[in-house]
């Protein structure tokens, strides 16, 4: 991959004139996208297939740019409409935000803003309301990225007079005709998106990149928790870290597990208990240590452990 080959190439071509066949690395350095990708790699945990695809897209845009400078034009730019599918909390929205910045840095979109919408923002409430509403949103998003969260809600098969279909048609038309002006990213849960595409094959075929977000493994979730705690200026003590690991295993086995979002919620609840523990022991000291440390007891109080209890007893 281009980024990994960067360091040695930079030194090799530092003196060469750029027009007479500079290296990929020098072009990459000009855009600053390498730094952005590196940041993307290090700040987001896991998501290997997503990162690989985004690297490929970045590479394509960069090479396209080099080709254009030499006069090799491919008719029209590449189509970059994307579809992110994955379970809740796997980072779809976060990646979409990054995507806008990356595409902007690569010069594919002109402004680099992201407009996040759902069905409510696109579909109107009465006849003749949908088209202007959808167009308004599309115009706002031009020059940037339009992110449609839970896109499958656009199509309601149970109601044949639903206005969602009209929104989809306008969307399709603009996606095709104004390809250079905006990038559309659809996001949603895998199974429902698949059903949505089955009933709208035109939409599926106009989206070049279907990217599936895998679930996080326990180790990755642990890293994410660590990252979140750092950002909030908390930390686990030695025992709490292993208890949280155990918590994650139990929680993952339960229904409605929402990956990173569940981790965030668990930490938020632990913060509540931590605060209440300090509050209910007024005589306890309020050193920095006490204010920032989440202990095993704060985590143990979770319902998840209580629910697991009968199971473990039965096993014994």
């Amino acid at each position: 991959m281009i980024a990994s080959a960067l360091p040695e190439q930079t030194t090799a071509t530092a003196a060469g004139p750029p027009s007479a066949g500079g290296s990929v690395a020098s072009a990459l350095a000009d855009t600053g996208v390498d730094e952005l990708l590196r940041e993307f790699d290090s700040e987001l945990i896991g998501l290997a297939p997503v990162k690989a695809r985004i690297r490929e897209i970045a590479a394509l845009l960069l090479i396209d740019r080099l080709r254009r400078e030499r006069g090799f034009t491919a008719a029209g730019g590449p189509s970059l409409h994307m579809c992110f599918t994955g379970n809740p909390g796997t980072g779809k929205t976060t990646v979409a935000m990054r995507m806008a910045a990356i595409l902007h840095r690569l010069g594919y979109i002109r402004k680099g803003h992201l407009i996040a919408v759902t069905r409510d923002d696109l579909v109107g409430q009465f006849i003749g309301h949908t088209a202007p509403k959808t167009k308004e949103v599309l115009k706002k998003a031009m020059g940037g990225v339009l992110f449609i969260d839970e896109a499958y809600y656009l199509y309601r098969p149970e109601n044949e007079r639903d206005y969602g279909q009209e929104a989809i048609e306008i969307l399709l038309q603009v996606m095709e005709n104004n390809r250079d002006d905006l990038v559309v990213i659809l996001a949603g849960y895998k199974d429902r998106m698949d059903r949505f595409f089955e009933s709208n094959p035109g939409l599926s075929s106009r989206i070049a990149h279907h990217i599936d977000f895998p679930d996080y493994r326990t180790g990755e979730l642990m890293q994410i928790a660590q990252r979140m705690l750092d950002a909030m200026h908390y930390r686990f003590d030695a025992e709490a870290a292993s208890v949280f690991d155990e918590y994650l295993r139990l929680r993952m086995a339960q229904p409605h597990f929402a990956n990173a979002r569940s981790v965030r919620n668990a930490l938020d609840r632990a913060r509540l208990r931590h605060a209440y523990r300090l509050y209910s022991h007024p005589e306890a000291d309020t050193s920095d240590e006490a204010l920032t440390t989440i202990t095993a007891a704060d985590l143990r109080a979770s319902r998840v452990f209580a629910a697991a209890e009968p199971g473990t007893q039965a096993a014994q």
Binding site: H113, M142, G144, L182
Partner: peptide, 17 residues
């Protein structure tokens, strides 16, 4: 021709109209 476009970020939206 339509309402004034208050929230545009890029000329493409106006060119579309």
């Amino acid at each position: 021709h339509g309402a004034p476009m208050f929230d545009l970020n890029d000329a493409a939206g106006a060119m579309y109209e």
